[in-house]
């Protein structure tokens, strides 16, 4: 073992692999968010996801394995099978879809009440996506509409984003990386 390795393990900088779950309603922009985070050479044209896709990307020396879940109604029940096996959750919300904000709340409640997430300090990152849309709600409004302040035993963060251009994504992922590293350190 070289000196550098020793140093990096000492400062917890060693490259590690974490698994995150990307959920959200259909057409909220989950695949687009991941598409932007991926390296340039394997970008795809985004189409409605069937079942789930596994994507890999790197951020600050941390390798992310993202499970891009489909948001279609018939695939939403697949989400809960992966709650036990992830270190963080990215919840993508379409901030221009005011009608289905109630559905987002419903899905969030189901997520928070699931036995696999109840006891865990899973960091949840909310992307208030499509912030460029004309009638988009601000991230503050979404946070209050979803009653996010009620989530007390999990760290959460909401940031407005535009997944097509990539605005706001880095800030969110930065926060998530920090939280996940913190969690690992505590263990």
């Amino acid at each position: 073992m070289g000196l550098l390795d020793k140093l990096s393990s000492l400062f917890r900088l060693k490259k590690r692999e974490v698994k995150v779950l990307v959920v959200g309603l259909n057409n909220s922009g989950k695949s687009t968010v991941l598409n932007h985070l991926k390296s340039d050479d394997d970008k795809i044209t985004v189409e409605p996801t069937v079942g789930l896709n596994v994507e890999k990307f790197k951020h600050n020396n941390v390798g992310f394995t993202a499970l891009d879940m489909s948001g279609q109604v018939r695939y939403r029940e697949v989400w809960e099978h992966y709650y036990s096996d992830c270190e963080g959750i990215i919840f993508v919300i379409d901030s221009s879809d005011r009608l289905r904000l109630a559905v987002v709340q419903e899905e969030l409640e189901l997520l928070l009440q699931h036995p696999d997430t109840v006891g865990k300090r899973l960091p949840i990152l909310f992307f208030a996506n499509k912030m460029d849309a004309r009638d988009a709600l601000s991230s503050v409004k979404i946070a209050s509409a979803l009653n996010l302040h009620r989530i007390i035993n999990k760290p959460w963060h909401i940031c407005a984003s535009n997944a097509v251009k990539g605005e706001g994504l880095d800030e969110g992922i930065e926060w998530l990386t920090q939280q996940i590293c913190e969690n690992i350190r505590k263990e």
Partner: peptide, 8 residues
């Protein structure tokens, strides 16, 4: 657990 019980 987060306090969503009032909505159950």
């Amino acid at each position: 657990m987060s306090g969503f019980s009032s909505r159950t």
